[in-house]
């Protein structure tokens, strides 16, 4: 559509200055720190509340899953993750700040990569810290029913929970680049993630489409003995596909649209 002669792309546009810039964008806005802290605190708080209040009968039940139970608060932490991802991306679209950003980093691929890298890395670090803390304290609270990091599936669930939070964050960030508004994405995605799989899951309880929704698929990684069509890593892979699609849509929007 453009007749601008393509100027030869420089072989190596440095990513480092953009990474530094994106880092400053996040650390300089308190609301984004609050959302990140909420990921940790909400997940941990609700998880510990649950882990600490299981009755002896619940703990002894044959279907009791000590892994899944340690991350009971994950859906609440997911709200923080969605908020963080949406806010970090939407900061550009508040009052046209993206024009300044793109004037400083006109290479949109570099700009987008750096932004996602910083958002994703922060979410992953916070996510892993969250999951490890939930696991260690949660298992301790479950006394002899708790398991150790060396037990089958335990390490997988800790890593998976952290990755899950990072993927959910990036999912929200990608959608926000399309919608250009944090409230729109937060308002849509949270009900979608929190309720959709319950609603559809109730209608369709035998491993149908609900198993492939982002949250349901992604949380397979937390289960000690996963059932259904998706194995733990395959489930996380399905979530990664959702995230990838959102990020791709965000990229197409950023690349095509006038800023």
């Amino acid at each position: 559509m453009s007749t601008i002669p393509l100027t030869p792309m420089k072989s190596h546009v440095s990513l480092t200055p953009s990474l530094r810039s994106e880092w400053w964008k996040i650390v300089s806005v308190r609301g984004q720190w609050v959302a990140l802290a909420a990921v940790f605190l909400a997940t941990l708080g609700f998880s510990l509340l649950m882990s600490g209040t299981f009755t002896a009968e619940q703990l002894a039940a044959p279907e009791f899953d000590p892994l899944r139970s340690a991350y009971y608060g994950l859906n609440f932490g997911g709200i923080g993750a969605v908020s963080f991802g949406a806010m970090a991306a939407a900061g550009e679209y508040k009052s046209g700040a993206i024009r300044l950003s793109l004037a400083a980093v006109p290479h949109r691929g570099v700009f987008y990569t750096a932004k996602l890298a910083v958002i994703g890395a922060l979410a992953l670090v916070v996510g892993l810290a969250t999951s490890l803390t939930c696991f260690l304290i949660g298992q301790a609270l479950m006394d002899e029913y708790g398991v150790g990091l060396g037990d089958p599936g335990a390490l997988r669930s800790v890593l998976g929970c952290g990755i899950y939070l990072a993927l959910i964050t990036l999912f929200a960030a990608g959608l926000t680049m399309v919608a250009r508004s944090a409230p729109a994405v937060i308002g849509t995605l949270i009900p979608f993630l929190m309720m959709m799989s319950f609603v559809i899951g109730d209608l369709d309880d035998d491993g149908g489409i609900a198993e492939f929704l982002p949250d349901r698929a992604g949380q397979q990684i937390l289960l000690q003995d996963p059932t259904g069509p998706l194995s733990p890593w395959a489930g996380l892979g399905v979530l990664a596909l959702w995230t990838g699609a959102a990020l791709w849509a965000g990229w197409v929007a950023l690349r095509r649209r006038d800023a």
Binding site: R20, V29, G31, S95, R99, A104, V105
Partner: peptide, 18 residues
């Protein structure tokens, strides 16, 4: 075109870093 939640100095630091 500047995020109101940032301070003026941070706003410029973001640009300077980029």
């Amino acid at each position: 075109a500047a995020l109101g939640a940032r301070t003026a100095r941070d706003h410029l630091r973001v640009l300077a870093a980029a």
